[in-house]
């Protein structure tokens, strides 16, 4: 039986009088990859920001192993929850190894001093997991978009947090990088982390997630294993299009067919 890492209770989020999330109740388990999917504007990114403790709920709350996020010390929250935003980038052309070391800040690392052994080891492990050791000494402005995205992923992995949140980590990546990224997320779950990832690609979600949460109209429209959440009819109304459902190796692969 898996442990519940994050719990969302009655979460309501409003922004300037517009409701973005309206009464969300969810529990996320350790050791699983949960994909959050849904049409544009459904509130996926907002939900992830609430899970990361970046936005304050209008009502309801998010709990980390039973503790309300709002009551946690920033350092404890930061070392427990890693967050990789959409289109993550850096404002300065940092060296990759320094960039990844920023993931150790929640554990007290300071880039102005030599890293402690445990921090340097975690940085090295993160680089190995994204297959980026060979890039470690290069400044990120000399890298391709795919390579840079891997370094950003390594930065979040280096925290070695118990919850890993990623907002569309495969957007604008070519298929090879996209598959590799999903593999890295699976490995993070295998390590025991609770992995929650916002995805646009339903096919990737069905292949790599243990569980899919479909958000539509600011609410949870469906929630369950890929075969249940992506069943015919369920996602049609959520997205407002008709899907055809292919099945490849027993895995559902929905294809948007017509409006």
């Amino acid at each position: 039986m898996n442990k519940t890492a994050l719990t969302v209770r009655g979460l309501v989020s409003r922004r300037e009088h517009a409701v973005v999330l309206d009464g969300i109740d969810l529990a996320f388990e350790s050791g699983q990859v949960t994909a959050i999917v849904g049409p544009n504007g459904a509130g996926k990114t907002t939900l992830l920001r609430h899970l990361a403790g970046l936005d304050a709920p209008t009502a309801g709350r998010v709990e980390l192993r039973g503790q309300p996020l709002a009551s946690l010390a920033p350092a404890l929250r930061a070392s427990s929850i890693a967050y990789l935003p959409q289109a993550a980038s850096a404002y300065w052309p940092l060296r990759a190894r320094d960039l990844v070391a920023l993931g150790r800040l929640p554990h007290g690392a300071d880039l102005s001093r030599p890293l402690r052994i445990q921090d340097a080891d975690a940085v090295q492990r993160a680089l190995e997991r994204v297959d980026g050791v060979g890039l470690a000494d290069r400044p990120i402005d000399t890298m391709s978009q795919g390579e840079r995205a891997r370094m950003m992923m390594a930065r979040a992995l280096a925290t070695e947090a118990s919850v890993f949140l990623a907002d569309e980590p495969v957007a604008s990546l070519d298929p090879a990088y996209a598959l590799e990224t999903m593999g890295i997320l699976r490995a993070e779950a295998a390590r025991g982390a609770c992995v929650i990832v916002v995805l646009h690609d339903l096919g990737l979600a069905a292949r790599f997630a243990d569980r899919i949460v479909v958000l539509a109209n600011h609410k949870v429209a469906a929630d369950g294993p890929p075969g249940v959440a992506l069943a015919a009819g369920v996602i049609d109304s959520a997205y407002g299009v008709t899907f055809r459902l292919l099945t490849v190796d027993g895995i559902p692969q929905p294809v948007a067919w017509e409006r």
């Binding site: 920001r49 990361a52 403790g53 970046l54 920033p74 350092a75 929250r77 930061a78 070392s79 929850i81 890693a82 967050y83 935003p85 993550a88 980038s89 850096a90 404002y91 300065w92 940092l94 960039l99 920023l102 993931g103 800040l105 929640p106 930065r155 925290t159």
Partner: peptide
């Protein structure tokens, strides 16, 4: 931390 933008900096504590 702010090299990564304000949101990520906050997520790092």
């Amino acid at each position: 931390a702010l090299s990564l933008g304000e949101d990520t900096a906050r997520s790092l504590g």
